[in-house]
């Protein structure tokens, strides 16, 4: 009689698979089904970078970028940007943070040709010198559709009102980081 593995339900003929007359092709069907399922599952983190230097004083600038990343067709992703920050003065200032796609050919600091993913994703209000803040990561979903999409990703801070600049923190103890997570097949 055949043993059955607990995970895939594969049959293991006593005589050995290759030469067993009892062997029929169900195993291959099961392996194939599992391979297809595994291919659709989340692959987890597919890109990560951490930064250990502060930004300069940002008014409307690209703070960080990923020069090129290929999002594979028919999959879902999350792009995450996590940073602490502090303002340079004590005026009442409002900033928007966003994650954008941009053409590969564009210089990293260009602010044209940007397409904000999920719009302006976070507003930061700064009104006095209060030390460093942390608001939690910004997370935007991205699904490339039926074809692979290779794009530049730009993480932007944009002042909307006020007179202050914003400095994005990075040091050995408090890294600024961005990463891309594969969530699995697009549904």
């Amino acid at each position: 009689m055949a043993d059955v593995t607990t995970f895939l339900g594969l049959e293991k003929p006593i005589g050995g698979e290759a030469h067993s007359r009892a062997m029929i092709n169900r195993n291959y069907d099961r392996v194939e089904a599992f391979a297809i399922l595994a291919d659709k599952m989340a692959k987890g983190k597919v890109f990560e970078k951490s930064v250990t230097g502060n930004s300069g004083t940002v008014v409307d600038d690209v703070v960080d970028n990923i020069p090129s990343f290929t999002f594979k067709a028919n999959r879902r992703y999350e792009i995450i940007w996590d940073t602490s920050y502090y303002g340079t003065g004590n005026s009442d200032s409002l900033f928007y943070l966003s994650v954008n796609t941009a053409p590969l050919a564009d210089a990293a600091n260009l602010l044209t040709n940007l397409t904000a993913i999920e719009g302006r994703t976070r507003a930061l209000n700064w009104y006095s010198l209060q030390g460093t803040h942390h608001y939690g990561p910004i997370v935007v979903p991205y699904a490339p559709g039926a074809s692979d999409v290779t794009t530049q990703i730009k993480f932007r801070c944009q002042r909307v009102t006020g007179d202050d600049g914003m400095i994005f923190v990075g040091n050995a103890n408090e890294k600024r980081f961005y990463k891309i997570i594969d969530l699995g097949a697009q549904i």
Binding site: G53, G56, T57, N65, P67, A108
Partner: peptide
């Protein structure tokens, strides 16, 4: 708060990656 040193955008010409460097660090690359 750490001592404030202004940093500037510097783009790696090989990789098009953005860095924020001090003026001294930028001068050292030129």
């Amino acid at each position: 708060m750490e001592e404030f040193v202004e940093r500037f955008q510097w783009i790696d010409p090989q990789t098009n990656e953005l860095f924020w460097l001090t003026q001294a660090e930028i001068d050292a690359k030129d």
